[in-house]
Design a protein around this nucleic acid. Sequence first.
DNA 1: ACTAATAATCGAAACGTTTCGATTCATGGG
DNA 2: CCCATGAATCGAAACGTTTCGATTATTAGT
Lengths: 364, 364
Amino acid sequence: MAGIKDVAKAAGVSVSTVSYVLSGKRSISSKTTGKVLRAIDDLGYIPDASAQKMRGQLNHIIAISEPMHEGMNQMQYSAYFMQSAWQARAAGYDVLLLTGLDAVADIERVTHSNLVDGVLLLDVEERDARVAQAARYHKPCVAIGLPKIHKDCACVDIDFAKMGTRSADRLFALGHRQVAFLRAQEIDYARHAGYVLLFREAFLERARQIGLRIFESGPVDNATFDVRKFVGDMLARNPRPTALVSQSGVNILNLTVTALMAAGLKIPDDISVLSCGTFLCEEPMRRPVSEEPFEPERLCSIAMGSLISAIEHRQGIAGEVTLIDPKFIDRGSLAVAPKGAEISTSRPIASARKSRNLEGELMN
Amino acid sequence: MAGIKDVAKAAGVSVSTVSYVLSGKRSISSKTTGKVLRAIDDLGYIPDASAQKMRGQLNHIIAISEPMHEGMNQMQYSAYFMQSAWQARAAGYDVLLLTGLDAVADIERVTHSNLVDGVLLLDVEERDARVAQAARYHKPCVAIGLPKIHKDCACVDIDFAKMGTRSADRLFALGHRQVAFLRAQEIDYARHAGYVLLFREAFLERARQIGLRIFESGPVDNATFDVRKFVGDMLARNPRPTALVSQSGVNILNLTVTALMAAGLKIPDDISVLSCGTFLCEEPMRRPVSEEPFEPERLCSIAMGSLISAIEHRQGIAGEVTLIDPKFIDRGSLAVAPKGAEISTSRPIASARKSRNLEGELMN
DNA sequence: ACTAATAATCGAAACGTTTCGATTCATGGG
DNA sequence: CCCATGAATCGAAACGTTTCGATTATTAGT
């Protein structure tokens, strides 16, 4: 393998001259520059990354920590990871993936051994050890997510609390007063995934404040959840909910939507549906559903940007929190609450076209 | 950051003694060993990876190359990648992901700059530049896949040619003579994905040899493929195919199976279904289908094993080819060819009456 | 008690860069 | 013609390890 010495020899100059040609930190005559560049090209010289790093140069490597855990949503998982990798690459950084179960140890290993320039934390939970221990890394560190303890780590996330408040308000403004709430998977609450908890809490709290009556689903498990029962119970209520807010994954939501339609309800005329803190690939949905989505691309872009800026300007970012406004995607599954449904369940739901027409006329 | 000098000072020994304690390459008295280990622990010392690498030590980093390309199957993509990362980690290696579009340049960069100890190539195509250029890397390199030119690179893959032959034989042995063949996505043939071509070629060739009549689908595009037409055309043939071999993805296959069942055909009594070179997540399938699957886990395990062995024993593996026997998963969708169907299509297809009606409908 | 072997430890060179300070050479102002 | 300035280049130190050869301390064999 050709080293800088070989280049120097081939070009008939000293080692330091070659280095200065490459870094441009001192002026070099154009004649010499030419000779050196030609030699570099001839020999296919590429500087040794380790030697450079030893001299305090940047590696242009970023560690991404995403420990594998059970019930992990593969799609969602790779969405964040791929986005981050892509963003990093666009900025000239390579990505070292850490999936080990003892994440803190892994991060400490790669930072202390000076293998990476910075760290990005994915899939962080409400009480995340990786974030809590960030001070130990001695390298810039950014998390996507907002754990309780985050004073030693920069955090970037969607403002899920605002999302909860806003969703309650949104339905209220449309006249809904009875709202069904479909929980996320139980396992996500159990592992204290921040976004799940933040949204639910804020949503329920706001609902209470403004007088939205909530019918919350039982625990959800993708494999065993009984959608028919949930929908049955929901429609049996009096007064019947006129809107459904879902935190659940695309599969369960799709089944639920299908069941609602099978029960003769039209979306959004008879029932509004809103999915929050989710990532609906359009494809498998029976009917498009409006949502306040995850935004892996935007989040990763912001996080990676601030991480790289911290790295390159060698300035700390510990404790910085960036919450971005949730976005609303209108797929037409939200509408004004139907008048009839609030008063009594003994009326036909929507099975008859007439009744809906009548309602429509009455509302004019 | 504590360095080896600090440890030496704290333990009251020389730098080289500390190094020997760590590497165990010379005998050190247990008293000294104790002092040194305590100092290391106190200071939280972790050796600088760059300095070690400069002395010719291994990095324990493996580059995984998986260029992003259009129409990439996210699920399948991450399956291989995650498996590899997992296997690497289990062997004490971290993983550097290269997704850039100019893959050869990226690999050359990380190998020449001595950033990684070896390279794993994923998603390789029949004429894969990364494999063809493997000689330039000067580091051990293993590909999952078997391109035409592979003399400078070790290759690990399922024996898709054997899979093709065996599938033809399997159906023949069950008495099938008329077989429909559902192609993979056109884009996969177009980019010369090796497995797709190898399987199809071997399957069709063997079919010709033993006298299997093949009805091949038109070009498939996940977004636009007309499943109804394909199934309609297939059932309209005389004699009607008694088996379906599919190279297509799970979505199209599922639709096809659904259409077949809707047409009144029972699987496997009226028609056998076999999926080859696929990765059927059970969940979304309307009916389980027997398959000769991809085996990401096995493949990655073998590939990573031989890569790491080459790295650690510093011995070349260029040109080594490992083809593993395809596996057959019986999900009960294969059966002996129905007697009637072979002779004439004027006979009822299934045991039932409405099948003719449906045939008629489909032909409209 | 003396030598030979072995165990334990140390000092210094080497790995491939970057960068500081020193040196040389040309240029222009007085 | 001399000195000061700046451009172009060089030599050597430094980064944090590993490892070689040398040195000293210990043990065993006679």
